[in-house]
Design a protein around this nucleic acid. Sequence first.
DNA 1: CTTGACCTTGACGTTACGTCAACGTCTAGC
DNA 2: GCTAGACGTTGACGTAACGTCAAGGTCAAG
Lengths: 252, 252
Amino acid sequence: MDRTIHDVARLCGTTSRTLRHYDAIGLLPPSRVAGTGYRYYDDDALVRLQRILLLRGLGLALPEVQRVLDSEQDPVTALRAHLDRLRDEQNRLSRQVASVTWTITALENGDPLMAETMFDGFDHTRYQDEVEQRWGAAAYAPGDAWWRALSAVDRETWKRRVTELGAAWVAAAERGTTPGSAEAQDLARRHCAWLASIPGTPGHGTGRPAKEYVLGLGEMYVADPRFAAHYGGEQNATFVRDALRVYAEGNL
Amino acid sequence: MDRTIHDVARLCGTTSRTLRHYDAIGLLPPSRVAGTGYRYYDDDALVRLQRILLLRGLGLALPEVQRVLDSEQDPVTALRAHLDRLRDEQNRLSRQVASVTWTITALENGDPLMAETMFDGFDHTRYQDEVEQRWGAAAYAPGDAWWRALSAVDRETWKRRVTELGAAWVAAAERGTTPGSAEAQDLARRHCAWLASIPGTPGHGTGRPAKEYVLGLGEMYVADPRFAAHYGGEQNATFVRDALRVYAEGNL
DNA sequence: CTTGACCTTGACGTTACGTCAACGTCTAGC
DNA sequence: GCTAGACGTTGACGTAACGTCAAGGTCAAG
């Protein structure tokens, strides 16, 4: 009647280590334990093991298997929840496959591995997380896939726009323009329009960036030396921030 | 120039713990370590971190990221291999989704959770692993999905065929038939035809089961009390085994 | 009684960090 | 100079589900 641990393992296509594990976590105690410590399993235990292995084969975690077999949870409910997780995982995988595929073709076209020079050191997507954490913009899930998806020409166009905008800001600041001036406000308008065109920006799609996000970015332009450097120093960055603030308060 | 660990973490959207981990495994040593043990990172380290995070985001394991960044492996090659793994995982997930979906509908139709009574306790699919291990049949990947996919009518038909075949074996054995007799050999032929019809059987699809597999099964009918019981004891099982052996040697 | 097969518990390794714990360091304000 | 509080350090455990030794006890056959 009673089988040894290895016999049971072979019969069910698993290992004795697994059975000991299931005993250790209380999932499948042996039907009998001899004085020597030897584990013995009867037919009921075999049936339970079959069920465990089937559910595990469907991808359920062991604690969940246990809840189902001990009738603490409806099998159908558990499986439905599991199905949702599986679909999430499928989506995640699909996105990852797309990203990897895209990166491979990009590399084969001679693109550098990274877009670390994208935006000429002015990569907002790399700082959105920080803006969000420090100034509480709405949550979003950015990424640089959209940038890598652009054609070389589009990228050049984009970079040129960024460079021009930055140069205009610097020029206005050096000239002593005030943040509230018409010129500064026009730059702020262009800046916001540009921000809104970046996928991942809070407000992207509505035509204008979220107010809190713009205010947060402005603060960071000043606070972060990398951004400040882009505008030729903290002085200029402060000017940009103030101009953006005025614009945001009045228009966003 | 040099940033503290937490600043770098915030800038790149990760955590200081992660940076310490990358230091510990030699993936990203700080550019400078003060006498106090404090870690400081320069711009080069930031760039490397960006690359690490991008590759990690694509799903590469850290040792692989390290090999790529240290130019020990071509990025495209690594990504292609990774893509293969991702596709395998996608396939696995698809199959699992199908299995879970099927199980859910089966449960809703009132089927018992398990098919542990399938084949009336004569489930070859449950023992194929053992046959393979002990007698070296070809590798295969069985499963009981095909059985669960059968309609109720099909299952009854199937069970009846199995029962009839078993009864015929028992009858022949009890009558004292010899393994090499025409009657026994005809039963062996039917038995092999039946085996070949089971998806997962080595040789399934060729119309006849693999010779080694049949020989192995015959041994198991005798060796395993569960199978032997199906034939009414070890005596009868031995008869079945011998008849199968004769048939297999002459026809497979 | 021996030999070999099989059993036991214990413990470490796997992946990429999260999360304390205990304790040293830096900086700003008084 | 002192102190509070923020930030840094190393060390260690936990995660999921076992695989894989290691050291040593048990069982069945010859």
